[in-house]
Design a protein around this nucleic acid. Structure first.
Length: 591
DNA sequence: CCGAGCTGCGCG
DNA sequence: AAAGCGCGCAGCTCGG
């Protein structure tokens, strides 16, 4: 699995960071920073890592110091601990190296030959810093404890370890690319929280009232929910039936002759009973009410912006997680509330079927890549004759990536194996390795966690001569679970890398666009972003850019070019498309 | 009263 | 129609 030789051409910031000190051209400088009381110590580093100079800057002068070094690559402990302060001073760095995130990658990467130094540096296994101090007194202790070390000596020592690990690794090029993309993502995560997602609270309330009925006066349930609950109780002939407690509801259903084993929607739907339909409706509304109702709106939307905390690499596969506000779960029916400011527009884009396309590319499966040539990969699979319908193609591909063994999906896998042997071999091999306790890696070298002690104990117990049938069954089950995890890891993780490259490249393109006049700005987006297009949302394979309306077409081009760059950066000239569904609109409503 | 664990459901 | 991956969050139950 060599990286395509052309992979580093033409990609701006990512490329510059990725090539780093191996580049024969004079590269932009590295400057590592650390805190010393309220001052900042900045150390300029030569290409070989030697210290060139050291200065001490007061906190108030730090932003100006950074602003004077536009080409510099800043090496810092943890992006949330450094970037917000610069942004609030209207300074935006082009490139950074996030020591905490890069530590986690290199510590576990199978490409790193000797990870002993990194493993010993346990202080870098810290959780990310929490920079928002609008916290309660109770939370403050946690904030003090959070984050990796932020002094200059720790930063320099860790940076030296990381460079040595990369230089001695099996594939420095890939790892540099991954570290650059990860660090760019860390910048973007902070920037998107500060800019926020433009959110029309009035439209949100209108939708709530339309769906749930009038807002309760004090602590009560919305009207429509009350009505549905009443209807359920009447149909169950159980005036006291509780709809919000799973065990109680189950007992009520049983008394009414509905012998469901759970109260989940798909199971209830199988029963014929007049209480079922209003109950399912009630549950749908209750979900909206509790997860994204008026309380959510009051807590999370300020000044027309939803500002979640994004957590880069919060998922082991490298996907982002989020903390607070459920940013990764905004329900489709609330998307009309995502609305551009007056005079501004949204550019909403997502990649159609990102994961199977990534699988085609990383496995070098030309047949799957051919099926992926058009806008709809599933239609392409039908055309290849592997399966009969688009629905089958979808369930088969998902099953291949998730490790389905039964049902429609499992039944279709043999056909998929015949038609796409290389793609299937890649995921099957990932599953085999994981099942046997090994680790697997993404395209750029992020590696799955080692087995846990508990997992190894279960496997060990089953291997004993006196192991019971139950021991063996448990071990087989746990091994299969892990196989499905590693099978999915390589695809989900590589898709996350593609998305990071897309984001990073787009960020650079947007930053290069000329600003609009201040009076046409969007002040709620923050000083740095108020007058120019900026990323406002990211979710695995989807981005939303908030832009002055007259720049929307230009932004759309940039979004497409960034996707093409990401594909080239990861997979070189391998012929696989990553087509975007892209629209320019006032709202993010899905059609 | 608090926290862990479970269930169910939203997103990809 | 609901098996197979990854999450976060709300509400409930139950044990301490």
């Amino acid at each position: 699995m060599r990286l395509h030789p052309g992979a580093y051409r033409g990609i701006g910031a990512l490329r510059a960071t990725a090539e780093s000190h191996a580049d024969p051209q004079p590269a932009p400088a590295w400057i590592a920073v650390g805190r010393d009381g309220s001052d900042v110590v900045a150390v300029r580093l030569a290409a070989d890592g030697a210290e060139l100079s050291r200065v001490q800057v007061s906190a108030r002068d730090f932003a100006a110091f950074v602003a004077a070094e536009p080409e510099t690559r800043w090496v810092w402990s943890d992006t949330p601990a450094w970037h917000p302060g610069l942004l609030s001073a209207s300074v935006r760095v082009a490139r950074a190296h996030d020591l905490r995130l890069c530590h986690a990658i290199l510590r576990d990467s199978a490409l790193v030959e000797d990870d002993r130094g990194l493993r010993a540096a346990r202080e870098w296994d810290a959780a990310p810093s929490v920079e928002d101090v609008s916290a309660t007194l109770f939370d403050l202790e946690e904030i003090g404890a959070a984050g990796p070390p932020d002094d200059i000596d720790a930063a320099l020592a860790e940076f030296a370890r990381q460079r040595a690990a990369v230089d001695a690794s099996k594939d420095p090029g890939r790892l540099r690319l991954l570290l650059a993309a990860e660090s760019a993502g860390a910048l973007i995560a902070v920037e998107m929280r500060i800019a926020g997602l433009p959110w029309d609270a009035a439209e949100h309330e209108r939708l709530l009232t339309e769906i749930l009925g009038a807002r309760p006066a004090a602590g009560g349930m919305p009207v429509r929910m009350q009505e549905l609950a009443e209807e359920v109780r009447i149909e169950l002939r159980d005036p006291a039936a509780s709809l919000d407690s799973q065990p109680k509801l189950l007992r009520s259903l049983h008394r009414a002759g509905v012998l469901a084993e759970s109260t989940s929607r798909w199971e209830l739907a199988r029963y014929e009973h007049p209480a079922i339909s209003p109950l399912i409706q009630y549950k749908r509304l209750a979900r909206l009410y509790t997860a994204n109702g008026w309380s959510w709106l009051a807590e999370w939307v300020r000044d027309g912006r939803f500002r979640p905390v994004y957590v880069p690499a919060g998922v082991v596969t490298g996907r982002w997680a989020s903390s607070g506000g459920g940013a990764l779960q905004i329900p489709r029916n609330l998307r009309p509330a995502v609305k551009a400011d007056p005079g501004w527009a949204l550019v909403v884009a997502d990649v159609a079927q990102l994961e199977p396309r990534v699988l085609a590319a990383m496995s070098g499966d030309a047949a799957l890549a051919r099926a992926a040539r058009g806008q709809d990969l599933y239609a392409g699979i039908v055309d290849s004759g592997a399966v009969a319908t688009r629905a089958e193609a979808k369930v088969a591909i998902l099953g291949a990536m998730y490790g389905a063994t039964t049902g429609d999906s499992g039944r279709l896998l043999p056909a998929l194996r015949r038609t796409y042997p290389r793609a299937m071999a890649l995921v099957d091999e990932a599953a085999r390795v994981g099942q046997q306790g090994g680790v697997v890696s993404t395209w750029l070298g992020r590696t799955s966690p080692a087995t846990s002690e508990g997992w190894r104990e279960v496997q060990g117990a089953a291997a004993e001569p006196d192991a019971s049938a139950a021991d063996e069954a448990r071990a087989r089950r746990r091994a299969a679970d892990r196989g499905r995890f590693t099978r999915n890891f390589v695809v989900q993780g590589t898709a996350a890398e593609w998305a990071l490259a897309w984001l990073a490249d787009l960020r650079t393109r947007l930053a290069a666009m000329p600003p609009v006049e201040a009076e046409r700005g969007a002040p709620a987006s923050g000083r740095v972003f108020a007058t120019r297009p900026h990323l406002a949302f990211f979710l695995h394979d989807e981005i939303i850019v908030h832009t002055p309306a007259e720049r929307a077409d230009e932004v759309a081009v940039a979004v497409r070019e960034a996707a093409a760059s990401a594909a080239r950066l990861l997979f070189g000239d391998f012929p696989v498309d990553f087509p975007l569904d892209l629209r320019i609109a006032q709202t993010a409503a899905k059609d």
